[in-house]
């Protein structure tokens, strides 16, 4: 036993990779993969790349420790929560000169008022992606997701805040309400809706809509743009009563082992060429002023990717909720366990 152990340990020492390394934790399918190898080639820093599928998923993994990530990509409300819980490092912006390319509109937002912890990566809205071959009325309200006509043709997001958020918006309440009665009401609404819902999904939603498996789906705008590029019958609508506008940003979690490497990576992601490659690939809306100018006409004119200021007028960003989050979890479990 000891001999085997000794050989194994020795093996680790001999073959251990001595290169500088950073650990990156991003959403699934949220980068042009070639960018990673280019970063490795240009800087000599090795990238270990992991993915997650919801903010909560990411938060729990980082909080549990064990794996120390150098760069993560949470959304607005989660950044606020992580700042409040002292989970983020302040970024040294002297090492991120390309920050100058970020549109002023996405600086100093509520969740990071002095812009010390986060650098915007992509932004977007939540809306309804629908198949015009199956839906021939105008889609401009969340109410259509409760229309019995579309029984078993509706896809909802398997994400607590987004789905409960849709119900809150339909009821005319704030996305950030802490009023338990209002949340209960939203929960009831989702329970009523459940018989009409085909499935609660996250990553599969785009493929299902492209394949014509459902008529209506609640999606993040980037998935809508990708879907519309693959199936011309698809269209995207932001309901008139308003929706959620979100920003995903790059942050450095506390406990990062290579903060300078992380800053190099963030700066690299903000260089015009790389930002353009990423935007072209994931099709979400970029806050990068120069990369946006390089985009094709069709995507710039797509209201899902770059909605008019008018459409964004009613939008609300998610705020951190603190303890009320437990209520979200209970309500969502009740909806799904029904």
């Amino acid at each position: 036993m000891l001999v085997i152990l000794a050989v194994v340990v020795a093996g680790f020492y001999v073959f251990r990779d001595n290169r500088e390394t950073i650990y990156v934790f991003n959403w699934g399918d949220y980068i042009d993969e070639s960018v990673i190898s280019r970063f490795e080639k240009e800087t000599g820093i090795k990238v270990v790349y992991d993915v997650f599928s919801t903010n909560e998923d990411m938060y729990v993994k980082i909080q549990a420790g064990g794996s120390s990530y150098d760069v993560a990509f949470p959304s607005d409300y989660m950044i606020k929560r992580m700042i409040d819980e002292d989970m983020l490092e302040k970024i040294n912006f002297d090492n991120v000169p390309n920050y100058k390319y970020v549109d002023e509109r996405f600086k100093d937002l509520d969740f990071d008022p002095n812009n010390e912890y986060s650098v915007p990566y992509f932004w977007g809205t939540v809306g309804i992606l629908y198949n015009t071959a199956m839906v021939d009325e105008e889609v401009d309200s969340w109410d259509i997701l409760w229309d019995k006509k579309y029984e078993k043709q509706i896809l909802m997001l398997d994400s607590q805040r987004d789905s409960i958020g849709v119900a809150l918006l339909k009821l005319g309440y704030s996305l950030n309400t802490k009023d338990i009665a209002q949340l209960e009401e939203a929960g009831e609404l989702l329970k009523q809706q459940k018989p009409l819902v085909l499935a609660y999904v996250v990553d599969e939603v785009k493929d299902k809509m492209v394949a014509g498996e459902a008529a209506l789906a609640v999606v993040w705008s980037g998935d809508a743009v990708q879907g519309m590029a693959e199936n011309e019958n698809l269209a995207y609508a932001i309901p008139k009563s308003g929706t959620n506008m979100w920003v995903d940003s790059m942050v450095i979690p506390k406990g990062a082992k290579n903060k300078e490497g992380a800053e190099k990576f963030i700066n690299f992601m903000l260089s015009t060429e790389i930002a353009y490659l990423n935007t072209k690939h994931v099709m979400y809306s970029t806050p990068h002023t120069e990369a946006k100018k390089m985009l094709d006409e069709w995507i710039l004119n797509n209201p899902a990717a770059y909605p008019s200021d008018e459409a964004l007028e009613n939008t609300e960003t998610f705020q951190a909720l603190g303890d009320v989050l437990r209520e979200y979890d209970r309500i969502w479990t009740e909806v799904k366990a029904r």
Binding site: D57, V60, L198, D329, T333, A337
Partner: peptide, 22 residues
């Protein structure tokens, strides 16, 4: 295969560890 509509005990456990952190 259930499209997230049929929460089983395994899903409940997974949710506590991965999403809620409870």
């Amino acid at each position: 295969l259930g499209g997230g509509q049929f929460m089983l005990i395994g899903n409940l456990i997974e949710q506590q560890f991965l999403f809620v952190g409870d």
